[in-house]
Design a binder for these strands. Structure first.
Lengths: 160, 160
DNA sequence: AGTTTGTTTAGAATCATTCTAGTCTTTTTG
DNA sequence: CAAAAAGACTAGAATGATTCTAAACAAACT
């Protein structure tokens, strides 16, 4: 992704928020920009550290408040905490995708697939039919072993 | 589900655990039985209260340890905490299904659908192809408004 | 019987998240 | 523009779910 398109994405999301009468404060813009340009599924602490130079007086509470605001407006999603830490992770959700999570090291990997949009539609429809929920979005997490951990564990098994 | 089949399910899961050389303690059996016979997506506190009469000396730490054991052996799954509380929820995962979660009241509803098994297979395959993960399972959560909250919120809107 | 390994208990410790009170900023209104 | 109102931010305290620790207990192994 080029810098130009990140800027375009930022502008588009800001427009979306403004259209809902949500104020764009410097804090919100910096946090949003961080999320658009970093795809490492950061937790609150990582975000806080990552923008400390741009917002020296930032409060962690503001990060929490802002993330909640973004979640409620379907701009980012929350990912479960892995075994390795106890904190939730966040992910800008511009292009729909799902997540592969390593049960060994806790790494989270984005999975983009054309088929996902059709799957999503089917799941929303099934849910409506069977529960009468009004569906707004969905999250899919796939659990398993990442290639690195697979290799590591196989070597251990071979050696031990 | 009849009582008989719950007992059969319990026996089957115990056999599975034993085949992996995992000890079946009274605590583990009671907690497992609770999860098999209650499908209200309990949190730790609810489980603890629900079996207090059967295990008067039970420690919460044991509940946490046992749930982790069951998760690692793909017997139960963990569900995210809703806005209404800060604790994780647990669900016996004998028959694969996914979850609809109400964004307003936090209710979690099981969704059973024949199509889910095919979706799951497709998702596992996509993940393998694109990330080279070795997939063991997956969770799907659908977010939206439950029928009750939809009605409640519509009435408010109409009245206000 | 004694030793090792694994499990449970009770309570303390941790730490992510939420809450609170006060301050600051922006918007609205006259 | 000034005043008032609404919304947002900060710093630090409070909460509370989860994890950790040390000691007691139970089961498996020699």
């Amino acid at each position: 992704m080029t810098e130009e398109s990140a800027a375009q994405t930022l502008a588009a999301v800001i427009a979306k928020l403004k259209s809902r009468n949500i104020r764009i404060t410097p804090q919100r813009e910096v946090i949003l920009n961080y999320l658009i340009t970093h795809h490492n599924h950061p937790d609150v602490e990582t975000i806080y550290q990552g923008i400390a130079d741009q917002l020296p007086n930032l409060s962690v509470a503001t990060v929490y408040n802002t993330l909640k605001l973004f979640i409620d407006n379907d701009i980012i999603i929350e990912l479960p905490s892995t075994d390795k830490d106890g904190s939730l992770h966040y992910d800008f959700f511009g292009v729909p995708h799902f997540h592969a999570i390593c049960e060994n090291c806790g790494k989270i990997t984005d999975v983009f697939a054309d088929e996902y949009s059709a799957i999503n539609k089917q799941v929303a429809q099934l849910t409506r039919q069977q529960t009468n929920y009004q569906v707004t979005n969905s999250h899919l997490e796939v659990y398993g072993l990442c290639p690195e951990c697979r290799q590591k564990l196989n070597l251990q098994k071979g050696t031990g």
